[in-house]
Simulated assay, not measured.
Amino acid sequence: MTAIDEIKAQFASQNKQLQALSKAYEDLKKDMMTTDNAPQSSQIAYSPDLKSKVFEKAPYFRFLESKGRVDDSFGSTYAGFYKETDNSAASWIDESDDIPTQTASSYAEEVSKMKTLIHPIDVSLMAQMGNNAIDILAREIDKGFIKVTNQLDSTLLQGAGTAAAKDFKGFTKQVSTNVDTLDADEPISEDAIDDMLTSIIDGNGGVVDCIVTTNAVAKQLKKLVAPYRRFNDKIDIGLGHRVIAYEAPNGSEIPILIDSNLAQINSKDVMLFVDSSTIEVKRLLAPTLMTNLPTNKLGTKNAVVSFATANNIAEFRNGMIKGIDTSLEVASPYNVTVNVPEAEGTG
């Protein structure tokens, strides 16, 4: 090989190295651009206005949150729950008696994968630039936060927990021990409510600290117990809101949440009796704003996203009354006929 050939070979090798460096630089530049424009997230904080709106739209969820039943410190896509079946009992024995045989309570481990809840926000560039009266994007973000929480509230009440629904099982799909279905011509009554509370409290050791129902049922209850103090009193549930309460047979005041997300079952209204200590809500991601999502449109594409799941770890300490026909007349004490004896004639 001549000296000229060696020089040519060196130039060719250097050229290949320069091309490789150039390609590496371009790839690095693309990576940097991708990183700069990658989706970003920011936690959505409760403002006083949002707190009020969220309570109005999702009172059951906010109640559970106030009771410390929502765990936002969870760090896994899977949540483990221990579902309790209580078989234990206490008994008296003589000092010299053997310790009696006991049937141990069982705790079934159940694993649930986090479910994805999303509210897309797609606002065009023209809509944002051509409107000086309101901040459309900010309004859409607030609405997305409320709607995500609203949907979570609905799922906590009656989520199907099926692959098609892509959600988790809610209260009405898990409670099966204390369930009463009213007859077709049977209106809701104090006896039905008190019997359910007795069954839960005395029979199963539950502590009902919340009743959830619809506005139509609440209207019947108000008429049912109008002459009494119960249900007309309002109590503070620690959320800056006062709600009506029902006086249980043991004298405790149970807050009643009117939740528009509670759907009918077989075209009839329902009433839920909740022991909040049995409801566990796990969230890998609280409602969070994801920005700079890829889009081919002139505008910004964002989304409010949450990862959550929940379980009822002791359904036997809860209850449900189904088949409430709100078209029936309740047995109001005002509808009592009093027979007044006729005055005797004076002759």
Rank of each mutant, 00 (worst) to 15 (best):
T162W: 05
S47F: 08
D122L: 08
Q220V: 00
N292S: 12
D259M: 11
G345V: 02
I258L: 13
I324F: 01
V305W: 00
R139S: 11
E186Q: 12
L137E: 15
D5L: 05
G159T: 04
D183Y: 05
S96Q: 07
L21H: 12
I258T: 10
A163M: 13
S96V: 07
V270E: 05
I121C: 03
A226V: 10
S91M: 11
K57S: 15
D49K: 11
M126A: 13
Q14E: 10
Y25R: 13
G206M: 05
K83V: 07
S332W: 06
F63P: 03
M32L: 14
E247G: 05
K169W: 01
E26M: 15
A310N: 05
S42A: 12
G161S: 03
D233H: 07
F11W: 00
N318P: 07
T103M: 07
E247R: 12
V281C: 00
A138N: 15
I201C: 00
K268Y: 09
L18Q: 09
H241Q: 13
V179H: 04
V340G: 06
I146G: 06
A127F: 09
Y60G: 00
Q264K: 15
E6S: 10
T155F: 00
S252Q: 14
N312A: 02
G203M: 02
D36N: 12
L285I: 14
I313Q: 02
L328W: 07
S52Q: 07
Q102N: 09
K115W: 03
T103H: 03
P48H: 08
N37Y: 14
S112E: 13
A20F: 06
I279P: 00
A133W: 11
D180Q: 11
Q10A: 14
Y46L: 15
D194R: 08
Q17I: 10
N215G: 14
G319V: 03
G323M: 06
E190W: 00
T34P: 01
I146K: 02
N37Q: 11
N150F: 00
V111G: 07
A343Q: 12
L239K: 06
G299C: 12
V243R: 07
D142E: 14
T116L: 14
A108S: 14
P100N: 08
E95G: 04
D36E: 15
L272G: 02
Q19I: 10
G319K: 05
S189H: 03
G323N: 07
I4D: 09
K57C: 04
I244N: 10
I244Y: 09
T326H: 07
F171N: 01
A343I: 13
V217K: 02
D71E: 09
L285V: 10
T346F: 09
Y60Q: 02
I7R: 11
A310P: 02
A165L: 05
N292V: 01
D97W: 06
P48I: 01
G161K: 04
F307E: 04
T181D: 02
T77D: 10
R229T: 15
D122W: 01
Y334V: 05
D36Q: 13
V123R: 03
A218P: 00
N335G: 03
E95P: 00
R230K: 13
V274A: 01
S106H: 02
S277V: 06
T326A: 07
P187A: 11
S327K: 15
I200R: 06
T346P: 00
